[in-house]
Amino acid sequence: MTAILKREVRAYFDSLIGYIFLTAFFAASGVLFSVTSLQFGSTDMSGMYASLFYILLVLIPILTMRTLSEEKRQKTDQLLLTAPISLSALVIGKFLAAMIIYGLGVLMTLVYAIVISFFGAVSWLTVIGNVVGLLLLGAAYVAVGMFVSSLTENQVIAAIGGFAAMLVLYLIGTIAQIVPINWIANILAGLSFSARYNPFTYGVFDFSNVLFFISATVVFLFLTVRVLERRRWS
């Protein structure tokens, strides 16, 4: 697993995807930070964290698009799948590598908080809650993106498919409102990523939301492993 993790992190910076992702993330969070906090002279950063939700819809697919699709296209999956490691170790190694790159982006928002703390009192607990929320949301998105990437050999399809899948998970709450059947609407509303994420930005640390994102991550990583497993039998 560590071999995969190390190689993936390297590959992110060899293939420029890591730089592109981080640049875009820093730029987006920087703009949001100045628009929602600096301009108003406020130490409340929740506006930035809330808006980052939408930025991630676009950025995470870029991070995950090549994870598994590229291996299949280049036939390097033959090396990985015939090596003496389990499929879960392979998938988790790749997941953690994407999380490290993503984590570097999220850490940047802490820098903004430190900068702003020189000019006023920052509610550190809220900031940390937000960072944890952002990491959990990202983890679930990365797992979704990897799952989509495992379904195709084409990076572009993986990126667009990942974006579409995340869009659905985001819109699921809105869809729930127009579903006339109550119990279906309730289930859909419970699955809404935005409804689960927003409380973090209000400064509410609800453990059920933490559990939701962890479960979503595990489910999609599990599905990714199943896709790889199934490929051997097809």
Binding site: R7, D14, S15, Q74, K75, T76, D77, Q78, L79, T82
Partner: peptide
């Protein structure tokens, strides 16, 4: 194992 197409990471 050496597959038909060597599984190389070109980068």
């Amino acid at each position: 194992y050496l597959p038909e197409f060597p599984p190389l990471y070109l980068d």
